[in-house]
Simulated scan of single mutants.
Amino acid sequence: MNTLKYLLGTGFYSGLTPKAPGTAGSFVALLIVFGIVYAQIHSLLIIFIISSGLLSLWVASYFEEEFGKDPQIMVIDEWAGQGLTFAAISFTGDLLTNVTLLITGFILFRFFDILKPLGINKVQKAKGGFGILGDDLLAGLFALICLKTLIFTWPNLFGMN
Rank of each mutant, 00 (worst) to 15 (best):
L157R: 07
W154K: 13
A143H: 00
E65T: 10
I76L: 07
G105M: 02
A39M: 12
A20C: 06
E64H: 08
I145L: 15
M74I: 02
T92M: 09
S14V: 11
E66P: 06
Y62K: 07
W58Y: 12
T23P: 08
L147D: 03
F86H: 06
G68P: 01
I151C: 04
I151Q: 07
D113C: 12
G35W: 08
N156R: 11
G129A: 03
P21D: 10
F12G: 11
K125C: 08
S51F: 00
D94Q: 12
F63A: 12
E78I: 05
G131Y: 02
G68K: 01
E64Y: 07
G129D: 04
N156G: 11
K19N: 13
T17I: 13
Y38L: 14
K116N: 06
I114T: 09
S52L: 02
T104Y: 05
L115G: 07
A87I: 14
S56R: 01
P155R: 00
A29M: 07
Q124E: 14
I103N: 05
F63P: 05
W154R: 10
F142V: 04
L57D: 01
F111C: 09
L144V: 09
F152Q: 12
D70C: 02
N161Y: 12
T149S: 13
I32E: 04
T104H: 04
V75Q: 01
I50W: 00
H42R: 12
L133F: 05
K122L: 15
T149F: 15
A39G: 12
I107T: 09
S26G: 06
K122C: 03
L108P: 14
T10S: 13
I132Y: 00
K125Q: 15
F27P: 03
G81P: 09
G83C: 04
H42V: 10
F130W: 15
T97W: 04
L95F: 12
G11I: 08
G128S: 06
E64G: 08
T153W: 14
L4W: 06
P18M: 10
I103T: 09
P18Q: 11
I120M: 02
S14M: 04
L55M: 09
W58F: 07
F130C: 08
F48M: 03
R110I: 07
D70F: 01
L133T: 09
P117S: 03
P155A: 01
C146A: 15
L4C: 10
L84D: 09
L4H: 04
F12Y: 06
F91G: 10
I107Y: 01
F27N: 02
T149C: 09
F112A: 06
N161R: 13
Y38H: 14
G53Y: 02
L147F: 04
L115I: 13
L54Q: 02
G105T: 04
I114N: 02
